[in-house]
């Protein structure tokens, strides 16, 4: 990876304008090169998934004779796991938003005395290693019969999403003028109704951002899938890939085809919902 000079040379503005066109074309070209280097592994994954031999040794740099045998095997082996992942991820979205949205609103707009303590707890909870949670949940889930269950994984996966969603939503909701809600209250709406009919619609964009990330977090979850399942009953696709890696490394095209299928949500969302993804990428960290 090349290192570029870090600061724009501040030549006189006029001179800059003169050179701007050729220069900015050069920057665009350079930017494409950087992006190509960074995304080469993604390209390679797609390329390898389409190779006929199932072995990357003979893999061409481009799939000249694309074969879908890898995908046939991937769907036969992992199709059910993809559906499991989809159900768990959608469940995580619903659960996370139901829990996070009211809390975010309360932390943004109500004057609670312990608000800073609550925010601190949320920030710290984002930092707790997942393995700590998994260690404790395994025993608890074992007693509660939640091992190998979709609700169990939804609840656990929400731990990736809920603190993040609260912070993202609160950052937006802090800007809602209290007068809008008060106006509805004067018209006789209760707090809950005002929240549902006013705050939720206004917060639509940040809810979409939080929901998309909840989906991606849950879809990507590997740790809870690995530790909180013990049988084949419920098997998210991330765990399916891990097991492929243990047994199928000779059949790379099937492994890579599964990897491609598991990347579809991230790729599609990044292209179609770029605005929301960008908002989440900056919002969650430094708020």
């Amino acid at each position: 990876m090349a290192i570029v000079p870090v600061v724009l040379p501040h030549a006189a503005a006029s001179r800059r304008r003169q050179k701007q066109n050729t220069r900015s074309a050069g920057y665009t070209a350079l930017g494409i090169v950087f992006l190509a280097i960074m995304l080469f592994p993604v390209y390679w994954m797609i390329n390898a998934s389409l190779q006929p031999s199932g072995n990357t040794l003979t893999a061409d740099i481009f799939p000249f004779n694309p074969s879908f045998a890898g995908y046939e095997k991937a769907i036969a082996d992992q199709g059910g796991n993809l559906v499991t992942s989809l159900i768990i991820s959608l469940g995580t979205v619903v659960l996370s938003l139901l829990i996070a949205a009211p809390a975010a609103y309360a932390l943004a707009q109500f004057r609670f005395r312990w608000i800073n303590v609550a925010l601190l707890a949320i920030i710290i909870s984002q930092m707790i290693p997942g393995i700590v949670i998994a260690n404790a949940l395994y025993a608890a889930y074992n007693d509660l019969g939640l091992l190998n269950s979709i609700p169990g994984l939804i609840l656990a996966d929400a731990s990736h999403a809920i603190p993040f969603a609260i912070l993202i939503l609160r950052a937006f909701m802090i800007g809602i003028p209290p007068s809008i809600v008060e106006a509805a209250r004067v018209d006789g709406a209760g707090l809950v109704r005002a929240f549902v009919s006013i705050v939720v619609p206004i917060s639509r964009n940040s809810l979409i951002t939080a929901g998309l990330f909840a989906f991606l977090f849950s879809w990507s979850d590997f740790l809870f899938a690995l530790t909180l399942t013990t049988t084949d009953e419920v098997r998210p696709v991330t765990l399916g890939i891990y097991q492929y890696l243990g047994t199928q490394v000779s059949n790379w095209s099937a492994v890579m085809a599964t990897a491609v299928l598991s990347s579809v949500p991230a790729i599609v969302l990044l292209i179609l919902a770029q605005k929301y993804i960008a908002a989440g990428a900056t919002g969650g960290a430094v708020k």
Binding site: M38, V42, M45, S262, L270, Q274
Partner: peptide, 22 residues
């Protein structure tokens, strides 16, 4: 280009591992 750069971060880590392993 900058937002496309986010892709490695959004992929499931196990997908990244599998790809890099190959």
């Amino acid at each position: 280009l900058r937002s496309m750069l986010l892709l490695p971060w959004l992929l499931p880590l196990i997908v990244a591992s599998a790809t890099w392993r190959s």
